[in-house]
Nucleic acid binder design. Structure first.
Lengths: 223, 223
DNA sequence: TAGGAGACTACTCCGGTGTATAGCCATTGG
DNA sequence: CCAATGGCTATACACCGGAGTAGTCTCCTA
């Protein structure tokens, strides 16, 4: 990772400090606090970035790009596995926290990230279906969207309700999370929930299924 | 609802205005903005509540209590159905928004609300299992926790990513949400996802299932 | 009818925030 | 050697937030 060499230019140090501060403390962290974390003066933010908003934008882009890189490095790309090993390194943990916070705030970065996850999930699901590992759906894109919304949402909520007291040990929270959801997830995915297909058949018979929800199909989460 | 009579005492008007303001604009809404919404002076907040924090606490309690009342009024108490009809009235919509925001922030109110939902879900699931409607789980409390975390988390995330442009039409967003998730939910619940039980069996054989996650069992979401 | 309590407002105060300006200092290129 | 560019700091500014103070008005009561 890039923090290996410790003496970066002030601009890079500010950017990295901002990412860490945003991840640990939220996006309301003050410029002065960020500058202090980077051990530079507050005015330098303006000098290099012009405004806090611009700094935030650069952080967003950097995080997204680093996440992409980390994901490609670990070649097995199933989202859950990525998330699972993401917080293994310190950088990965910061990235994860930053991303979850972005999603939680509904920022453009969060939206973009979610969209990306959904696309990847759709590809993976299609592959798994064609290999016979996963049962087909009547609406594959809707299922991909749904599954990401559920799993990402659960993670976001879990982190909101159980914030790591020490902003460093996201790893612990992450492990707790998986320890909690592993069994129910596997049960639900292999055995379902309903004992009989009545509800689904009712819904299908009602005709609501034929109507694609609304809006131009394919965007992140409707709207 | 209590806003039926329009001339309430300043205290009550402030409380209700704060609830609406928090729901629509977030908990960072300023005291002055809240006072303006209630058409009173800002100082009155201090006079009646002492501090913004205390006002917030009273709003939390009021919302929780009103939600409870609304839920009991509509006797069919399955969580999803409650959520579905909650935004039917204006008050219900405000309440829902307030609650989702609380959960998203991880505030005590959000935590309490989530906990409450999990307990209710556990009861309902147990009933449904004993009536043969739902397949049993190897760990019912974990499943209840998991299902609420997933569904509530998805809703929170959906609202974060698709905020209603007009803070009033949560109804539209809500309908969009259900239109999107209805089919995938029913499919997943009746047909599952995995074509064969290999993953689950692997997990069970690994022995991880026997170890209840961690910490004193039964709290909201671990920890 | 006088007194007092409480609802309510206008105004002040203080701290924190993002933004802006002016200048220092080192490195560099002519 | 010297000027100029750019990284960087110190300081100031304008603004807005919650909190605090003093005083007015109104209504109830003794």
């Amino acid at each position: 990772m890039s923090t290996a060499q410790e003496d970066l230019t002030g601009r890079a140090r500010l950017r990295d400090a901002a990412i860490e501060a945003f991840a640990a403390q939220g996006f309301d962290e003050s410029l002065r606090a960020i500058a202090a974390r980077a051990e530079v003066s507050a005015g330098l933010v303006r000098h290099h970035f012009g405004s806090k908003e611009a700094l935030r934008a650069e952080c967003d882009a950097t995080v997204l790009e680093r996440y992409r890189r980390l994901k490609e490095e670990s070649l097995q790309a199933e989202p859950k596995q990525v998330f699972n090993q993401l917080p293994g390194s310190r950088e990965g943990g910061v990235l994860l926290l930053y991303i979850l916070r972005s999603a939680r705030e509904g920022s453009p970065a969060g939206r973009q990230f979610t969209e990306q996850l959904i696309e990847e999930a759709l590809v993976l699901l299609d592959q798994a279906v064609s290999r016979g590992l996963i049962v087909p759906s009547r609406d594959e894109p809707a299922r991909a969207r749904f599954l990401i919304l559920q799993s990402l949402g659960a993670l976001v909520l879990y982190f909101a309700l159980n914030p790591p007291q020490d902003p460093e040990d996201f790893t612990t929270v992450m492990q707790d999370y998986y320890a909690h959801v592993a069994l129910p997830t596997l049960e639900l995915f292999t055995e379902g929930l309903f004992a009989d297909p009545g509800y689904l058949n009712e819904y299908l018979a009602s005709g609501a299924a034929g109507i694609p929800p609304a809006g131009p199909a394919g965007d992140t989460v409707s709207r």
